[in-house]
Structure formats: structure tokens, C-alpha cells
């Protein structure tokens, strides 16, 4: 078995054993999807709530996995000296990054399958042509959020990473259009939100996967910048111990 596969097997075993990780990556997005699709409390721009909430939840799922789960997991590994010990093994940084990336992608595939399935059951019928840009957006979002998660995990102690990442998650969940559309926020708050990575990702998924909607160009520009800058910053400042 290759070193990458051996590392990945361990990552999968540990991730699937941690209940709080499953809660963040699947439990919360599912809850948001079902609750806000059935209870008509959010002022969505679409006729039915599910048409906005379903694609927004896909963005939420990506943020949960690539920023929160990856960040917190890596932060504690760094604190426990796991990364240092791996650094003295033949695994190597490249294969470690590859194993972590594979874990994130595998988790996201499961999340997207489950969430899309449930959304379909709730009556969601997105236009087929929207999937390509939506998946491209989700990939950019993964890069941006993974960069942010690893930047936090690689510079702050484990418990602080836990607090900061969860705090950021909550702020972006509320202000990034993942439940309440950004247009409904007070002007200055919406302006700030559009510069952060959550709102452009939601703009891309909702704009692509809603019939007769489109994606505003600013969303692609902002998200691409984040997807480039955040991983570079993580590479620059990440400390292994």
C-alpha cells in the first residue's frame, strides 16, 4: 500500500469516528435544508424556499468540511505533535496534503449526494446546465475555505483554532447568504459580506442552480481571489509545531 493510501485510510478512520465532525459536515446542513425549506420564514427571492435554500446549503456543506472539519482536525494534530512526528516519517508534505485533500473531497461528495437527494425529495428541480458552474464554484470555495482553515490551524493553538473556526463559521453562516439572502442584510453588512468568501460562493451556487437566475460577475472574481490567496497564505505561515 502506498504512503498516501495508508495516510488516507487513517484519516478516514479517524474522521468517521468523530461524532462532532459528522454533526458539522452533515447534521447542520441537513437541518438547515429541511427546516428552512419547510418553514417559510426566510425572505427568499425564489418562489419556493427550497429553490434558494438547497443550493445555499451546498455552499454551507463545503464551508463546513473544508474550513471547520479540516481546520479543527489539523489544529489538534498540530497541537498533539502528530504533524511533527509525521514530518520525521517518509510520508512527506506532498502526500500529506494529498491525503487531506482526498479526505475533504470524499466528504464533500457524500455531503452533496445526501443533500441533493434530500432536496430533490423536497421538490427541488435545478437546471442541469447549472451544475458545471456550481461545481466549479464549490471547488473554488473548497480551496478558499481550506486555505483559511489551515491558516488558522497552522498559526494558533488547537483550542483557539476550535473557537475561532466555529465563530467564523457561525458569522459566515448568518451573513454569507447561506440562510438569509445577502440582499436582505443592512447595506454596510451586505457590503462587508460580499468581500468575504461565503457570499460569492452562495451567489454562484444559487445563481447557477435556480431556473432563470444568473451569477453576478463580482462573485467569480472575489471567490477566485480567495481561492488563490488563502492557500498561499496558509503555505506561507503554517507552522508544523
Amino acid at each position: 500500500m502506498s504512503a498516501w493510501a495508508s495516510q488516507l485510510r487513517t484519516e478516514v478512520a479517524l474522521a468517521s469516528r468523530q461524532g462532532e465532525q459528522l454533526l458539522v459536515s452533515l447534521g447542520i446542513p441537513l437541518l438547515v435544508l429541511v427546516f428552512f425549506s419547510l418553514v417559510d420564514v426566510v425572505p427568499v427571492p425564489t418562489e419556493r424556499a427550497v429553490d434558494y435554500v438547497a443550493p445555499a446549503t451546498l455552499a454551507l456543506a463545503v464551508m463546513s468540511t473544508s474550513m471547520v472539519s479540516l481546520g479543527i482536525g489539523t489544529g489538534f494534530e498540530r497541537q498533539y505533535g502528530v504533524l511533527k512526528r509525521l514530518g520525521a516519517s517518509p510520508l512527506g508534505t506532498g502526500r500529506w496534503v494529498a491525503a487531506k485533500t482526498t479526505l475533504v473531497v470524499l466528504t464533500e461528495v457524500v455531503q452533496l449526494a445526501v443533500l441533493t437527494g434530500v432536496a430533490f425529495a423536497l421538490g427541488w428541480r435545478p437546471p442541469m446546465a447549472g451544475w458545471l458552474p456550481a461545481l466549479a464554484g464549490l471547488a473554488l470555495g473548497t480551496l478558499a475555505f481550506a486555505g483559511i482553515g489551515l491558516l488558522i490551524a497552522g498559526t494558533l493553538p488547537g483550542l483557539v483554532t476550535l473557537a475561532v473556526t466555529n465563530g467564523l463559521y457561525l458569522v459566515l453562516l448568518l451573513t454569507g447568504g447561506m440562510i438569509v439572502p445577502v440582499d436582505e442584510l443592512p447595506g454596510p453588512m451586505a457590503a462587508v459580506s460580499r468581500v468575504l468568501p461565503a457570499a460569492p460562493l452562495v451567489e454562484i451556487t444559487t445563481g447557477s442552480l435556480t431556473p432563470d437566475a444568473s451569477v453576478a460577475p463580482w462573485a467569480w472574481i472575489t471567490l477566485t481571489l480567495w481561492a488563490a490567496a488563502a492557500p498561499l497564505a496558509a503555505v506561507r505561515w503554517f507552522r508544523w509545531e
Partner: peptide, 13 residues
Amino acid sequence: GIMLQEGGIQPAI
């Protein structure tokens, strides 16, 4: 082969 003074192993493993 190395042995760190402490840590280096996940508590959950």
C-alpha cells in the same frame, strides 16, 4: 527511526 520526547500520536487512534 525517532521517538519524540512526548506526544506525536492522536489520542483517538
